[in-house]
Design a protein around this nucleic acid. Structure first.
Lengths: 328, 328
DNA sequence: CATCGTTGTTCCAACGATGTAAAGACCCGG
DNA sequence: CCGGGTCTTTACATCGTTGGAACAACGATG
């Protein structure tokens, strides 16, 4: 692997001059510049990023800390973050926490300024005390604890409210919610949106219609749906706090021969690609994931370049109406 | 951020002694070791990986080059690779190629020995000439071109054959295939498995029943299925070269009111989590993804540690039978 | 012709860690 | 108390790069 030294020897100039050419410094004699460029070409020089970063005090990496790549929402998001990071010449390091406190703690501990320049976090269990972050960071989505860290995400209350409002507008009166969670910030906000939509429609908030989910996987949605269908009076609609729960719920409904949407309307949250092709396809809240990824990366880039103050970004969302609420 | 120098000053020893303690060198006096350990604790020292790797000539990273994280198979695999890499103290850098030749080329070009110690590649379009790899690499899945690079994956011919054999055993006689592709190695192998299974059952190979797919996304599966349903005599079963195609195919079938599995049996390939919860759930070839991830990472680790010869690994697979071929 | 500012280049140190070699401490037997 | 070996520690160079100072070359200016 060619180094600056090799190139310099070949071009007959000093190492620093080569470095200057590589870094686009203006004042290099055309003649030398040409020779250096030829030498660069001939040797196929690629800068040693480790050395460069050691010198510059940068690493060229950002961390993306998320629960699990096998969750479609995070996989899609990760893809978009990688693409956005590329524009700032950042490489992305993905850490999986599996949604556990210990996983999140060890992921955070592994990050240091020597490893990454910044971090994008999607925590689910962290406590206030854990947020002693070594590098500029941004939180995705809302979080239960109130910490002075920039956030990027949609207005979860408004989004949930829009979802439930949609169900109300279709005439549903007994609307369930799946995905309540004691410690998850987004869960609380979505529940609040659900509550508000019911209130503004003059519908009662019924405890038995709110089902918790410890994880947000398909299996949890199925289990929750089964318990709802076992009620004396099952719901005529259900708002799931993410698409996986909704997919699981629809699956459970199908197994009980409950027809969606005729007997039960279902709305999800995240707008996974999967939900477009399920049978029936799933009505879902669609956060603008590309906007989230870009906003998070750009925000971090500005934070790293200049010491700007903490600022949060609210990204847009929309409601995608599909067969699970309105039959084709 | 504390450096070795800071720790050394605090402990009253030389930098090298601290380094020795950190790296578990045996001959350090108990007294000094204790003082150094206390100082390490007090300063919260974390080694600067850039500097360490500069010195050691290692980077501590491996690259995972894949088409797209939004494809569930690759997302699941990436998660497993990250977990496997962690055991060797490797961080994983994910590069997306979007399945294009230029994307794959630029991903390869970006990888150098200064950036990663090794690479796991899942190429779809690369030519022989492109495989001038700068670091030890392993290919996932089969590839059309024959290059002397270790591979990890299942026996695609046998797997495809097993899938189609299953359809044959259920009495299907007009079995279609979705996912043929001119340049994709795995596609050729799966097609070969399909061909063999037909042959051993004494069934004819019918050209019009083999539908190509340029990409392996749900939309491609749906489009292919539509064209099959438009045939004068539509198939009574279809083998899709991956689960996404199968999901798309089932969706297209549902839109035409073709019942699965009564009118049409469907088998997929990859065994995505999604396929367990679809309605109907999808029969699929299940590669042992965890085994693939572990084998790839371990193989690379051995290659980097000792200059071992190129060796390939064949991982197991199984057939998961679900509702898309056998009604509940 | 001395001085000056501009332009172009080189030399040196430094980033933080580790390998090497050599020096220092220690203990043993003779 | 010396020679010789085994531990233990240290100084120094080094990895490849870049910032800064120093220096050199140059034409322009007074």
């Amino acid at each position: 692997m060619a180094t600056l030294k090799d190139v310099a020897r070949l071009a007959g100039v000093s190492v620093k001059t080569v470095s200057n050419v590589v870094n686009g410094y203006s004042f290099v004699k055309p003649d030398n510049r040409r020779r250096v460029e030829e030498a660069l070409e001939a040797t196929g020089y690629r800068p040693n990023l480790g050395a460069r970063n050691l010198r510059r005090g940068r690493t060229g990496f950002i961390a993306l800390v998320l629960p699990e790549l096998s969750i479609p929402y995070f996989a899609e998001l990760a893809g978009l973050v990688i693409a956005a990071a590329q524009e700032h010449e950042w490489n992305v390091l993905i850490e999986q926490t599996f949604g556990t406190l210990s996983g999140e703690r060890s992921a955070l501990a592994a990050l240091g300024p020597h490893l990454v320049d910044a971090a994008i976090l999607s925590p689910e269990a962290l406590q206030v005390d854990d947020f002693q972050l070594a590098v500029p960071s941004v939180l995705l989505g809302e979080h239960a604890v109130d910490v002075p860290i920039a956030r990027v995400g949609i207005d979860n209350v408004a989004a949930a409210q829009a979802a439930v409002r949609h169900l109300v507008s279709l005439g549903h009166r007994r609307i369930a919610a799946i995905g309540a969670h004691p410690h998850r910030g987004t869960a609380a906000l979505r529940l609040e949106g659900y509550r508000r939509a019911l209130a503004e429609a003059g519908l009662p908030f019924v405890d038995e219609l709110v089902v918790p989910a410890l994880n947000y996987h398909r299996a949890d949605g199925a289990a929750a749906m089964k318990s709802l269908l076992d009620l004396r009076t099952p719901p005529d609609a259900v708002f799931c706090f993410n698409d996986l729960l909704a997919i699981g719920a629809m699956r459970a409904a199908a197994e009980r021969f409950v027809r969606v949407p005729a007997d039960l309307a279902v709305v999800g949250f995240d707008n996974n690609e999967e939900s477009v092709y399920s049978s029936p396809s799933l009505t879902s809240i669609a956060p603008d994931k590309a906007a989230i990824a870009r906003a998070a990366v750009d925000l971090l880039h500005r934070r790293v370049e200049s010491t700007e103050p903490v600022e949060s970004v609210e990204t847009p969302f929309s409601l995608q109406v599909r067969e699970s609420t309105v039959a084709r």
